[in-house]
Amino acid sequence: MTPSINLQRLSDLPDFEVADGHPDVRGWAVRGATGTALGTVQELLVDPEARQVRYLDAQLTVPEPKRVLLPLRLASLDPETTSVFVPALTDAAAAAYPAYAEELLSPAYTQAMHQALGEAS
Protein backbone atom coordinates (compact mmCIF):
# COMPACT_ATOMS: atom_id res chain seq x y z
CA MET A 1 0.00 0.00 0.00
CA THR A 2 1.31 3.41 -0.90
CA PRO A 3 0.62 5.88 1.86
CA SER A 4 -1.30 8.96 0.94
CA ILE A 5 0.53 12.23 1.17
CA ASN A 6 -2.65 13.64 2.63
CA LEU A 7 -2.22 11.87 5.93
CA GLN A 8 -2.85 14.07 8.91
CA ARG A 9 -2.84 13.71 12.64
CA LEU A 10 -6.32 13.22 14.00
CA SER A 11 -5.61 15.83 16.66
CA ASP A 12 -4.96 18.32 13.85
CA LEU A 13 -8.52 17.79 12.58
CA PRO A 14 -10.72 19.38 15.21
CA ASP A 15 -13.87 18.55 13.27
CA PHE A 16 -13.17 14.81 13.24
CA GLU A 17 -13.22 12.06 15.82
CA VAL A 18 -13.01 8.28 15.88
CA ALA A 19 -16.32 6.94 14.58
CA ASP A 20 -18.92 5.71 17.03
CA GLY A 21 -18.48 2.05 17.90
CA HIS A 22 -14.76 2.05 17.25
CA PRO A 23 -12.01 2.45 19.83
CA ASP A 24 -9.75 5.44 20.07
CA VAL A 25 -6.51 3.58 20.59
CA ARG A 26 -4.43 6.55 21.63
CA GLY A 27 -2.79 5.59 24.89
CA TRP A 28 -3.07 1.87 24.23
CA ALA A 29 -0.04 -0.41 24.61
CA VAL A 30 1.74 -1.63 21.51
CA ARG A 31 2.59 -5.32 21.77
CA GLY A 32 4.85 -7.19 19.37
CA ALA A 33 5.03 -10.79 18.19
CA THR A 34 5.78 -12.07 21.69
CA GLY A 35 3.02 -10.10 23.38
CA THR A 36 5.52 -7.93 25.21
CA ALA A 37 4.60 -4.28 25.54
CA LEU A 38 6.97 -2.35 23.33
CA GLY A 39 5.49 1.12 23.65
CA THR A 40 2.35 3.25 23.50
CA VAL A 41 0.22 4.68 20.74
CA GLN A 42 0.60 8.45 20.79
CA GLU A 43 -1.32 9.63 17.75
CA LEU A 44 -3.41 8.46 14.81
CA LEU A 45 -2.51 9.36 11.24
CA VAL A 46 -5.67 9.51 9.20
CA ASP A 47 -6.69 9.84 5.57
CA PRO A 48 -9.36 12.56 5.77
CA GLU A 49 -10.76 11.75 2.30
CA ALA A 50 -11.18 8.05 3.00
CA ARG A 51 -12.10 8.83 6.61
CA GLN A 52 -9.89 6.03 7.86
CA VAL A 53 -7.01 5.73 10.30
CA ARG A 54 -3.99 4.52 8.33
CA TYR A 55 -1.08 4.56 10.78
CA LEU A 56 -0.48 4.49 14.48
CA ASP A 57 2.14 6.96 15.67
CA ALA A 58 3.73 5.05 18.53
CA GLN A 59 6.47 5.73 21.02
CA LEU A 60 8.47 2.53 21.45
CA THR A 61 10.55 1.99 24.57
CA VAL A 62 11.86 -1.48 23.71
CA PRO A 63 14.45 -2.30 22.55
CA GLU A 64 15.27 1.39 22.50
CA PRO A 65 13.25 4.58 22.74
CA LYS A 66 12.06 5.72 19.34
CA ARG A 67 9.03 7.05 17.61
CA VAL A 68 7.63 4.85 14.84
CA LEU A 69 4.68 4.60 12.52
CA LEU A 70 2.82 1.29 12.45
CA PRO A 71 0.36 0.45 9.65
CA LEU A 72 -3.05 -0.11 11.22
CA ARG A 73 -3.89 -2.82 8.69
CA LEU A 74 -1.22 -5.05 10.27
CA ALA A 75 -2.51 -4.55 13.79
CA SER A 76 -5.14 -6.30 15.87
CA LEU A 77 -7.01 -4.41 18.56
CA ASP A 78 -7.83 -5.87 21.95
CA PRO A 79 -10.16 -3.52 23.84
CA GLU A 80 -10.12 -5.70 26.98
CA THR A 81 -6.41 -5.17 27.54
CA THR A 82 -6.36 -1.86 25.64
CA SER A 83 -3.56 -3.26 23.53
CA VAL A 84 -2.63 -3.05 19.89
CA PHE A 85 -1.02 -6.30 18.76
CA VAL A 86 1.37 -6.12 15.80
CA PRO A 87 2.40 -9.75 15.12
CA ALA A 88 4.89 -8.69 12.45
CA LEU A 89 6.74 -6.59 14.98
CA THR A 90 9.27 -9.10 16.21
CA ASP A 91 12.14 -8.08 18.46
CA ALA A 92 14.36 -7.97 15.41
CA ALA A 93 11.84 -5.89 13.49
CA ALA A 94 11.51 -3.50 16.41
CA ALA A 95 15.26 -3.10 16.54
CA ALA A 96 15.48 -2.51 12.81
CA TYR A 97 12.38 -0.37 12.63
CA PRO A 98 13.07 3.07 11.24
CA ALA A 99 12.61 5.91 13.67
CA TYR A 100 9.97 8.36 12.55
CA ALA A 101 11.20 11.87 12.88
CA GLU A 102 9.46 13.56 9.99
CA GLU A 103 6.27 15.47 10.31
CA LEU A 104 5.09 13.98 7.04
CA LEU A 105 5.40 10.42 5.85
CA SER A 106 8.25 10.44 3.41
CA PRO A 107 8.79 7.83 0.69
CA ALA A 108 12.11 6.88 2.27
CA TYR A 109 10.47 6.22 5.59
CA THR A 110 7.73 4.19 3.94
CA GLN A 111 10.23 1.98 2.19
CA ALA A 112 12.27 1.39 5.36
CA MET A 113 9.08 0.59 7.28
CA HIS A 114 8.00 -2.03 4.78
CA GLN A 115 11.43 -3.58 4.84
CA ALA A 116 11.46 -3.84 8.62
CA LEU A 117 8.08 -5.53 8.62
CA GLY A 118 9.13 -7.94 5.87
CA GLU A 119 6.67 -6.51 3.38
CA ALA A 120 7.27 -5.88 -0.29
CA SER A 121 6.90 -2.16 -0.90
Binding site: A19, H22, V53
Partner: peptide, 10 residues
Protein backbone atom coordinates in the same frame (compact mmCIF):
# COMPACT_ATOMS: atom_id res chain seq x y z
CA UNK B 1 -7.88 -6.14 8.32
CA UNK B 2 -8.26 -3.75 11.19
CA UNK B 3 -10.04 -0.53 10.41
CA UNK B 4 -10.75 2.52 12.51
CA UNK B 5 -13.02 4.90 10.64
CA UNK B 6 -13.33 8.53 11.62
CA UNK B 7 -16.36 10.76 11.41
CA UNK B 8 -17.22 14.38 11.61
CA UNK B 9 -17.93 15.45 15.15
CA UNK B 10 -21.61 15.82 15.91
Amino acid sequence: MTEIPIQRKK
